[in-house]
Write a protein that binds this DNA or RNA. Structure first.
Lengths: 146, 146
DNA sequence: TTACTAAATAATAATTATTATCATTTAGAA
DNA sequence: TTCTAAATGATAATAATTATTATTTAGTAA
């Protein structure tokens, strides 16, 4: 995503365009595997030594509130952030602590159709996501789907 | 589950049968909605005023290590505990903070069959679970599936 | 362009959830 | 009954996150 596009997103969300917000959002786009707030902080600090960890936390939370990011809890407990807003599934590598996105339109539709046939009463569904937990067999290689 | 059955489970897992372990495990069976360690502590304290919060944490963690409980992270961050070991799905009520079990053999098979047709390389799958997030429409009533 | 104001930031204290430490107690084997 | 490794309780320590507050700044409007 372009810097100008990020600025537009911020303005559209009624957020002031600040340097900190731009670098935090850019970091999310660059960092794969759903970084934690701490990881975002470590990533941006070299080029922005005056940025505060609290600002990173607050910025991420603001983005979540405005729908620019999703917040996902990890099996380790701390929260991690995801800039991909389309419905998708997550593969949790327990040994490497990676969270890998798994986009699959067919799978989503399969599940949604199934759930439509069931009746889930008294619940307004916001989001459905399959969580696949496992261990990476060779941690030096990627998990791939085909 | 009977008390004697719980005792057997502990012995089978090479754990000493202590009063604390029995009340913590029993609490998990009684408390629906996947209590947090704190909630287990509050639940058992009236009848066991000398029990320590640290013991509750340690006991729960021991049970998880021995495979007697599952540990699940909640959207709010803290960990919650689940004595139901069979594969199942979770409904997260964001407004009430409940985690509701959703057992559905058909759904599990549907998903497993689908994933078998895909090839997930370099991952040893341990567990698959569908996460359904939403808001309870009437918080005073239950979510039901039929 | 400048001045203004609400919002954002940095620094840091406070809070919450969880884990570690260690002296004391106890379950279960001998 | 005795013994010992394991478990417990009390509490300190740590990690993750949120709150507080003085200072700074983006964006608006004169």
């Amino acid at each position: 995503m372009e810097l100008t596009e990020i600025k537009e997103q911020l303005t559209k969300a009624n957020l002031k365009v600040t340097h900190q917000r731009l670098v935090v959002y850019s970091a999310l786009l660059k960092l794969e595997n759903h970084p934690s707030a701490e990881q975002v902080y470590e990533f941006v600090k070299p080029d922005n030594p005056s940025i505060s960890l609290a600002t990173v936390y607050k910025t991420l939370e603001t983005f979540v509130q405005k729908g620019l990011l999703n917040k996902v809890s990890s099996p380790e407990g701390q929260m991690r952030y995801d800039p991909r807003l389309k419905d998708h599934n997550h593969i949790y590598c327990l040994n490497t602590k990676e969270i890998i996105d798994y986009f699959d339109e067919d799978l989503n539709n399969l599940i949604l159709d199934f759930l439509k046939s069931k009746h889930l009463n008294n619940l307004r569904i916001k989001n459905i996501s399959l969580h696949i937990k496992g261990d990476k067999i060779d941690p030096s290689k990627e998990v791939s789907i085909n």
